Simulated scan of single mutants.
Amino acid sequence: MSNPIFLALDLPRLDAALALAGKVRGHVGGMKLGLEFFCAHGHHGVHEVAQLGLPIFLDLKLHDIPNTVARAMQSIHVLEPAIVTVHASGGRAMMEDAKAAAGEHCKVVAVTMLTSMDDADLAQTGIGGSAHDHVLRLADLAQEAGIDGIVCSGQEVAAVHQRWKAGYLVVPGLRLPDGATAGASGDQKRVATPRAARDAGASVLVIGRPISRAADPLAAARAIETTL
């Protein structure tokens, strides 16, 4: 992929989402459509974004019993996504079934730990140890399950890449180094810059607010692209 940036297009209005996507399409490599977008706009919204001709990343974070996740994967075949997410915490069998049910050209990647969480949040869920160690455990499980890769923060991607050279590594929670308002961390706790994540081995960089909330989204997308 020549441009690893996937724009997080999670806007409540479809017309606004399409306008933003059309404006920056020449400076991103794909569109990431998350739960907010999919719940608001469904298959129709995905088809509309697909008309731009860029790969679609469906960030649905599927997490259920293996049979249900497999059937959900089958139900989105018609959308021809390039990437779909499941939760690694769903277990090996669930990930195996998700991959078996995915389309031929669809990469299945497992979310290890949300970038809005840190060590303290992890402890509150009853899981001991550091976020770093937890991500590595789930990355190993995902690799054993035979899926394509994982989602992790920029703080863990180098360690995962060292253990899983062929892994397709997706990094969200990316913020700009200048601390501008559009790039503020917000609800993200484990963040990194796009350049740092890419250098550490990221295959895909998911970038939302630093572009979508910038005063000039096109200029922001161009500026980020030039750093990679």
Rank of each mutant, 00 (worst) to 15 (best):
K61F: 07
V157K: 07
R195C: 00
V49G: 08
H63W: 10
D118F: 14
C106S: 10
D15W: 00
D199K: 15
S153F: 02
G186F: 09
D118K: 14
V151G: 02
N3F: 12
P217Q: 13
H41M: 02
G179S: 11
G179C: 10
G186Y: 08
V46Y: 06
P4R: 13
H41S: 09
A17D: 12
A166R: 15
L62M: 15
G53D: 12
T226K: 15
A215E: 15
L35P: 08
A8R: 11
L52V: 01
I65K: 04
A98K: 03
D199S: 12
A142C: 14
L35H: 12
A50E: 02
A214I: 06
A110R: 09
V160I: 13
H27R: 14
E156A: 02
Q162K: 15
L138G: 08
I83E: 09
T193W: 03
D64F: 10
H41A: 05
G208Q: 13
L169S: 01
T125L: 15
A159L: 04
H132T: 01
V151N: 04
R175M: 10
G22A: 08
H161E: 07
A182H: 10
S75T: 00
V86N: 05
L114N: 03
H77W: 10
A159S: 15
G146I: 00
M31H: 14
V206R: 05
I207C: 06
R13I: 00
G30W: 08
N3K: 06
K189S: 02
R163S: 02
H134N: 11
L60M: 14
E104T: 11
L141G: 00
E104A: 14
A40C: 15
V28K: 10
T112H: 03
A214P: 05
V84H: 04
D10E: 09
R92Q: 14
P177F: 07
Q188F: 02
A21V: 02
V78F: 00
A101L: 06
I83N: 13
S130E: 07
H105M: 04
T115I: 08
P55L: 05
V69G: 05
V109C: 05
A120I: 08
H105E: 14
D133A: 15
G208P: 13
R92S: 01
N3P: 09
G167M: 01
V24D: 08
L79P: 07
G22L: 12
R222H: 11
G45H: 13
P210T: 08
R137S: 09
L62A: 12
A21H: 03
G149P: 07
I83D: 10
A192H: 05
A120S: 12
Q51M: 04
G34R: 15
V84L: 03
K23V: 00
E144G: 01
A139I: 02
G90I: 08
K99V: 03
L114R: 09
L141Y: 07
I56K: 08
V206W: 06
P4D: 12
